[in-house]
């Protein structure tokens, strides 16, 4: 599937705001039992950048994404978001694991959109969106509701305020899920194959919302198989295979003239 979206413009990392990267990964490692899923990931994402991660299933791209907001704990290396070490506190030469509360605090500024939406089924669209702001950020409910309605309008669902997730299509659910993560006013949005569970005709509506988000300067890391989206909206693309970043660079370059044979083979396989 290759959906054409109006281009954001060829922006590569060099043109982005200088300074400390928002996300910095150094030799990040993760294993499940004896299986090494991440074999040393090095990566820097600047503020305002859209990085798309592509690669075959089992390449570790989702695992890497989940490490960033601590749904998985890394087994080696270092990971920083906004200059703050993820999951640990450095005490002299030791790293102390953070407690439940500190982990929850670190997660607040990172939004995540899941492949399977994961909306709360017992809450309406509006209630889904205000849950985080009211319960976690302690915003007044009325103010949160007002913002939720504005966000629903922004994702084109102004008329679905009081709908339960079961009454929405997959594409609509995913757009509510995006609005839910935006309500927390995150610095960073993670997308874990946000369109993979959607019927083909519903993919575009979600990608359009994501593109508009990119245009507002939101920092996004997007694990996706939508190469069209990666090319048009992504500033950079990283190709992952077998727990490593094989190749990374400006999206046009990676997608049209990849250097590595594995990248070429993958892009060819996805295109057909």
């Amino acid at each position: 599937m290759d959906i054409r979206l109006p281009s954001v413009g060829a922006v590569d990392a060099d043109h982005l705001a200088p300074g400390a990267p928002l996300v910095l990964a150094r030799n990040v490692q993760k294993q499940f039992g004896a299986v090494k899923v991440l074999k040393g990931i090095d990566l820097a994402v600047q503020k305002g950048e859209v990085l798309c991660i592509i690669g075959p299933s089992g390449s570790g791209k989702s695992t890497f994404l989940r490490c960033i907001n601590q749904l998985e704990r890394i087994d080696g290396g270092a990971l920083f978001v906004s200059g703050e070490r993820v999951g640990f506190r450095q005490v002299g030469n030791e790293l102390h694991e953070l407690d439940d509360k500190a982990i929850a605090r670190q997660r607040r500024s990172i939004g995540m959109v899941f492949q399977r939406f994961n909306l709360f089924p017992h809450l309406t669209a509006t209630q889904n969106i205000i849950e985080g702001p009211v319960q976690v950020l302690k915003q007044p409910a009325a103010q949160a509701r007002e913002r939720a309605h504005a966000l629903l309008e922004r994702v084109g669902l102004a008329d679905k305020r009081d709908a339960y997730p079961s009454q929405l299509s997959g594409g609509q659910q995913q757009r509510v899920a995006i609005a839910r993560s935006l309500a927390m006013q995150p610095e960073l949005l993670l997308f874990d194959e946000p369109t993979s569970a959607l019927d083909p005709e519903l993919v575009a509506e979600v990608l359009l919302v994501m593109r508009d988000l990119a245009l507002t300067g939101m920092t996004m890391i997007v694990v996706t198989h939508e190469l069209g989206f990666a090319r048009d909206v992504g500033h950079r693309v990283a190709f992952m295979d077998q727990g490593q970043i094989v190749e990374m660079g400006p999206s046009q370059t990676i997608l049209t003239e990849p250097k590595e044979a594995r990248t070429r083979a993958f892009i060819k396989a996805v295109r057909h």
């Binding site: 749904l71 439940d100 997660r107 990172i110 939004g111 899941f114 994961n118 709360f120 985080g132 976690v136």
Partner: peptide
């Protein structure tokens, strides 16, 4: 309850009791 519900709630910054 689906594991994804725990993850979505964690992602919002909720503590375990919340």
């Amino acid at each position: 309850v689906d594991q994804g519900q725990y993850e979505a709630a964690q992602t919002l910054g909720m503590t375990r009791l919340q």
